[in-house]
Design a protein around this nucleic acid. Structure first.
Lengths: 242, 242
DNA sequence: TATAGTTGTCTAGATCAATAGACATTTTGG
DNA sequence: CCAAAATGTCTATTGATCTAGACAACTATA
């Protein structure tokens, strides 16, 4: 019997949904392309069939599986998109042939004073003016990541406008006369998505995000961007190229 | 009011525990070194005080906070350990001064034939003999990661014995005449921990792991190790050095 | 066309999670 | 010493989760 634990604050149906999602992405059910019957799963997990049904209903809600009365529950989707991180990380280039169509939406932009951490990361004085951009990026219509990024306002005064016009950070930098830039640091953390992320990335509660805090710099090493990007963990993997 | 969501299969007290844990590791309560009073938290999250108490009880169980009647709830521990990933990633070196004492336990070792993926990653024929090591690593007594790693058995026949004797992959390689090696690829995924990981890393259900699949090679580019390392996400962050 | 295997729906009861309120106990500071 | 502020404990009630069982509806196949 596979283990699920009781009285942990995580409902059994959700634990089971998480397990089945994992099994699907591991390819455990590839032979048939279907999830095992509800009664079988109930026996495996040692729970009532209704509990399994709740789990499958949640996965169906996510669009991961589709149940057909009389036949069984079919797997609709499984892979994760791979996102490369290297010295020359560029958002849309990296996704390349994995998705047919990449959409980036600028949610909001404003000018803000630099907080302590961000000022330090960008090598500026605390309170220095920054352009802040909030974006959501999708692949083939599914949200993949959401980011908040900061640019020194003095050096890149029209970042928001250029980004909105050109749809790309790389091109917006170019419009300010910066031809090339490199990734200097990236830190990755995984955690549960907060309420805002659930909405922006169209996730269901309890879902996981990977948060990358990154700094890009020009070729002289002067920082040009600080960003906090949150990836939907069940749709993406990060590929580190050292 | 901070948002917690109801009827998501994740109990409110657990959502709140996750938030407070995050706030602690963000340093939000650094000014006082204490978590805000239960009544304040209850108001912030829009729940009953008892619900907050359940959350704090869970964090206390983890050893993250300690409540003292009449005074308040003190923070005992906060940072995530930062694990650097670069071309020259070495497990114990990287953790450096962040933990006083690093423990690595060899759970199991065996010889296995290479499966398709792993053979490909190591540049071997499918079915080639591999040494498989299962390990758990801890910092100051808390489990941080668990790994399964594979080495070509022909080139490193005594990997298990040397590792058990020397307690380090780097030293075990050295004992086979391999003085240096570099990381050639790393892929990172975040997901819910499975049953085995919950036990090995002493996590509670619903917890998150970051899984890194990595390949190391000798200086001529010939792969020497394939590893699948799972980090406890609430105790670690990954620092990518490109 | 039966029949076995599967998902869909309903009812009833048991257990867990969350709310509500009251009061005790401990620490801190005036 | 007293009062304010904090955590600790108890009871009662409501709503969500899980179990249990029965049966309907649909699909595939012998």
């Amino acid at each position: 019997m596979k283990t699920v634990e009781r009285q942990t604050g995580v409902a059994l149906w959700r634990q089971i949904a998480d397990r089945i999602r994992l099994a699907i992405s591991n390819g455990d059910y590839e032979a048939t392309g279907m999830v095992p019957p509800e009664t079988t799963l109930a026996a495996q997990f040692g729970v009532n069939r209704h509990t399994v049904r709740s789990a499958l209903a949640a996965l169906s809600e996510e669009g991961l599986v589709r149940a057909v009365q009389g036949r069984g529950t079919m797997i609709e989707r499984k892979e994760r998109v791979s996102y490369p991180i290297s010295r020359r990380t560029r958002f849309s280039q990296g996704l390349g042939r994995q998705v047919r169509e990449i959409g980036t939406e600028l949610l909001e932009h404003m000018q803000v004073p630099a907080s302590g951490d961000i000022a330090e990361a960008l090598g500026l004085a605390a309170g220095a003016p920054l352009i802040e951009l909030s974006t959501v990026s999708s692949g083939d219509g599914r949200p993949l990541s959401t980011a908040v990024s900061y640019y020194p306002a003095e050096r890149f005064p029209d970042m928001a406008e250029e980004y909105a016009r050109l749809g790309s950070v790389t091109k917006a930098f170019a419009a300010h006369g910066l031809a090339d830039y490199v990734r200097v640091s990236t830190e990755i953390v995984a955690r549960h998505a907060d309420a805002q992320e659930l909405v922006l990335l169209k996730l269901s509660p309890g879902a996981i995000v990977m948060e990358a805090q990154s700094v890009n710099a020009d070729l002289s090493g002067r920082p040009v961007e600080y960003a906090r990007t949150r990836f939907a963990a069940d749709r993406m993997k990060l590929k580190i190229e050292t």
